[in-house]
Design a protein around this nucleic acid. Structure first.
Lengths: 335, 335
DNA sequence: TCCGGGCGTGAAAGCGCTCTCAAGCGAAAA
DNA sequence: TTTTCGCTTGAGAGCGCTTTCACGCCCGGA
């Protein structure tokens, strides 16, 4: 920095002002300094900068998933489900204009002391927290740290934290409506894990809408949001209820598996059984037939999370805010 | 820190020594200081620390994948292929004892100026670089930055950089041998992208081994390491060569798709067509029948990358080193 | 011509830590 | 008892940056 200052014939203070875009610098001097910066190849030292500004210009994207060592590790789940890629895409896109980096931190939801440590150490200015399981203590712990945070869904236990979510029940209702409108009458559903709101809310929404229409005792089975789980659930469901003609599967990934099982069992989709998924992720396009599904605008939701987080960082006093997005029905071939 | 020092009745220097585990501190004093640290809830300021140590105690895991906006984004590819989860698992595991954080940075291999900027800013002490495409300029650029780096595979163009790889040709040969030993004689292969060494080397290895055994003109088709691509390639391959009885697919993910296509076309696996994959990732277990495949020890490889990187960081002068792992055949049901 | 106000710039303090260097202390050796 | 050595501790400088504060300069008004 001294080098630059000398090369430009100004003080370090002025160089600093140019770098930080202070408005009070004379245009000519600004230019001279910028040239000097370019000539010397000077790059500010981030450590020194954040020592004084108390800002790191980066936020963490913490993805907390339960580890199931004998089934699939949390990392395998994270790097296998397109959902998290969409979150990442949305968040990075929104953060770029703020010149803020995204630090992705996958973690086992049963053991995240290393995450807490990382956050306490002040590596980041805020946290985007993707955590869904009810018993996951992370949202509360992060909240207690006092670091700005935005959660990816309605926290299972009420928390004075900002969150962004999709109207899960509405999504389930759209699926139910569509199946009914096709003429399906013997409906069933493969839900997500019931210990996560996205799982139970979609199930509730589906069931209660159908109940209003006079359809009760709709069979359901609890899945795990994986392709493999969807396949297995579909097999069991069809074994118990062979006459099903409409199926709502609470995620696209599970739909992929379910679709395979259904067709393996000799049912045609959508003629014998119509299938509606949930997400509208890339997995929907990997399905054969192409999956009719409920779209949640994950990228936009993640972008909104990022914006809300930036607002919290900018003005720490700000009250928590929750934003709910509307899902939409995307009709393709499977229903 | 002053607080802690006062509470413990020592100087800041001593507190610092305790925190950094300097051996020259009296045991009793050490204990007093530690208690004071616990009592005050003191957490060192990382910015101040790295300002003086010039270390950030974190390394980047840069995953560079080409973006294909009309097909699948680089983020979708990354968060859909179990390979990267395994890399992450291996690297974090190896880094933990060093008390070093892993910062995951996915990037579009055609536009990574933001990565370069991040690295130049000194956020990390080193880079684990996952980049395979021949034309990807990132390895060279990182190398020119002078920051310690380890590459995930033999760099396409020779580079004085350390790398860790698996013996690709040997893997392909194991697959060929196994297919031959089953009695298959009309072999074919779905390769990876030929602009990446893992793609071309496996193809070469497969072909040249078979050529030595008198099998020439083995049909091949170029895949893209995705499930969907594998399915499509298998269809096309079988359309042109309906009499194939043994298939080597250069990744498990592609095998999953290929398996589906093969069975859709009425062929039994392994009786009509035996299929051998490559990777031994979780995708191999998602296959029906379970996939016989070539195991590459990705976690161990990533761990080795991390270790080599730490060595480079510890002694910057050190010469580049390359480590090659051996693949093994894992026999399951598909061949 | 002189004075006051504002704008642009520089000097210097200080962010929280590490680490060198010197000093202090006790024990061992003479 | 005195000297010396080694080990532990404290004082203080300095890492590279931002930011306050004060100063100097230029311009407009008197």
């Amino acid at each position: 920095m001294d080098q630059v200052a000398e090369a430009a014939g100004v003080s370090r203070a002025t160089v600093s002002r140019v770098i930080n875009g202070a408005p009070s610098v004379d245009a000519k001097i600004r230019e001279i300094v910028q040239r000097a910066i370019a000539d010397t190849g000077y790059v500010p030292n981030v450590a020194a900068r954040s020592l004084v500004t108390r800002k790191s210009n980066s936020v963490a994207l913490v993805i907390s998933e339960p580890d199931r060592p004998h089934n699939s590790s949390f990392l395998n789940r994270i790097f296998t489900d397109p959902y998290f890629g969409r979150i990442t895409a949305g968040a990075t896109g929104a953060l770029r204009p703020h010149d803020v980096h995204l630090v992705i931190i996958p973690t086992d939801s049963t053991d995240h002391h290393h995450v807490i440590r990382y956050l306490r150490q002040g590596h980041v200015d805020g946290v985007l927290l993707i955590s869904s399981h009810e018993q996951d203590p992370l949202p509360r712990q992060v909240h207690e740290l006092g670091i700005p945070a935005v959660v990816s869904a309605r926290p299972a236990s009420p928390l004075a934290a900002s969150f962004v979510d999709v109207d899960q029940r509405l999504g389930a209702r759209l699926a139910a409506e569509h199946l009914l409108s096709r003429g399906c009458r013997r409906l069933a559903t493969i839900s997500g894990p019931l210990d996560i709101p996205a799982g139970s809310d979609r199930l509730d929404g589906f069931r209660s809408f159908l109940a209003n229409r006079g359809l009760v005792d709709v069979p359901s089975i609890e899945g795990d949001f994986t392709r493999h789980g969807g396949e297995e659930c579909a097999r069991r469901l069809l074994a118990e209820h062979p006459d099903i003609d409409g199926l709502f599967v609470a995620s696209d990934l599970m739909s992929e598996g379910a679709l395979r099982a259904v067709q393996d069992l000799g049912r045609r989709v959508p003629d014998d059984i119509a299938v509606v998924g949930f997400d509208d992720s890339s997995a929907a396009l990997d399905c054969r037939p192409l999956l009719t599904t409920i779209r949640q605008p994950v990228e936009e939701m993640a972008a909104e999370m990022a914006e809300v987080l930036m607002a919290h960082i900018a003005s720490p006093g700000r009250l928590p805010r929750s934003v709910t997005f509307q899902p939409t029905l995307v009709i393709r071939e499977s229903a």
